[in-house]
């Protein structure tokens, strides 16, 4: 599996997103009046990926 895809997949399983904001970006969002972060259904993503076998596929790599 290419490193780029592996990193995306790991982020997805752990956070529900493939790209997550850095700490400095979260602070910047607050500074300019945007919501701190956009809400993510991480638990639902983990349940779906467990059901499809994706989590197992990734952890075996």
């Amino acid at each position: 599996m290419p490193d780029g895809f592996a990193a995306q997949a790991k982020n997805l399983v752990e956070t529900g997103r493939v790209v997550t904001p850095t700490g400095s970006m979260v602070r910047k969002r607050e500074q300019i009046g945007l919501s701190k972060e956009h809400s993510t259904a991480t638990e639902d993503v983990q349940k779906i990926l467990k059901k499809t076998g994706f989590s197992k596929l990734i952890s075996s790599k």
Binding site: F5, L12, S39, A41, V45, I48
Partner: peptide
């Protein structure tokens, strides 16, 4: 109207790793 509690779309990289997961995540 902002969609709350969404998840990753999931992009083509995820599609190529597992088609069913891609379908299910986007469908959610």
């Amino acid at each position: 109207v902002k969609m709350e509690d969404t998840n990753c779309c999931a992009p083509f990289g995820i599609q190529s790793l597992d088609y069913t997961s891609w379908l299910a995540l986007a469908a959610r």
